[in-house]
């Protein structure tokens, strides 16, 4: 990193920030398109469960973590059970603890006033793209990450709201297979993170634990048990390197 701070230098870095932001938006376009059907389905399901239309973008903008929002909608009633939904939100989003930790060594050079607002829009996809980009280029690019994240946030809020408004018309989108888009997006992200079979053995441990947990326990426990057992496996398998 340059230690000079001349005006031409900061201008150049500003320009490259804008370019980096646009690169983030551009490279995340396929993800944004993948968001559309999921957002529409979530909005539609939410109004069917008793959300008013404006509460849907409120939740999706303030929380911005799709998995927990699907769980919240699944558990929603009028009036909703606040404690249950908050607990399940914590469970589903506990992965953010580890995601933030993985980001920390790459973002040490950033001041708190930049990183704490940036963390508000960290989601699975923008985090994965930001980290993959940092690995490829050797430096974490905050504007690139913000380009991916903010594009995703705006898309998510707008299209969940559209889903809420169109709810009664498109409520049966799941019958046409649109809910599978979620799985497809996740599998492509997994393919991108695949290095070798040896390296990804913990994934299979996660799958082998999460799937039966889902069949046995109610709620979102399968996410926690699956993720934790995969990480325990990663801890012990790491010794062989």
């Amino acid at each position: 990193m340059s230690t000079f701070n001349s005006s031409s230098d900061s201008l150049a870095s500003q320009r490259s920030s804008g370019a980096e932001f646009r690169r983030g938006i551009k490279e995340s376009l396929p993800v944004l398109i993948g968001f559309l059907p999921i957002a529409l389905v979530l909005g539609a399901q939410a109004t069917a469960k008793g959300f008013t239309a404006w509460q849907v973008p409120l939740m999706c903008g303030a929380n911005f973590a799709g998995g927990s929002e699907f769980v919240a909608v699944g558990l929603w009633a009028v009036p909703p059970d606040l404690v249950l939904i908050a607990a399940m939100t914590l469970l589903v989003n506990s992965r953010h603890l580890l995601m933030g930790a993985a980001l920390a060594p790459l973002a040490r050079h950033l001041p708190g006033r930049k990183i704490f607002p940036a963390l508000f829009v960290m989601c699975d996809e923008s985090w994965a793209m930001g980290l993959a980009d940092a690995r490829k280029r050797g430096l974490f690019s905050l504007p690139y990450y913000l380009g991916t994240s903010i594009g995703m946030w705006v898309t998510w809020v707008l299209f969940t709201y559209a889903g809420a408004k169109l709810g009664p018309l498109i409520g049966d989108l799941a019958a046409f297979g649109f809910d599978m888009a979620f799985t497809a997006v996740f599998l492509v992200l997994l393919r991108g993170a695949w290095t070798s079979f040896r390296a990804v053995r913990p994934w299979f441990v996660s799958l082998a634990v999460a799937a039966p947990t889902y069949l046995i326990l109610p709620g979102a426990w399968y996410v926690a048990t699956g993720a934790v057992s995969g990480l325990v496996a990663a801890f012990f398998l790491a010794e062989e390197r």
Partner: peptide
């Protein structure tokens, strides 16, 4: 670091695990 590298994959596969059963 090895554990942290495994986080995204383990979480993603866990979230979609119900599809497999």
């Amino acid at each position: 670091l090895a554990v942290l590298e495994a986080v995204p994959g383990c979480v993603l596969i866990s979230v979609i695990a119900p599809r497999f059963v």
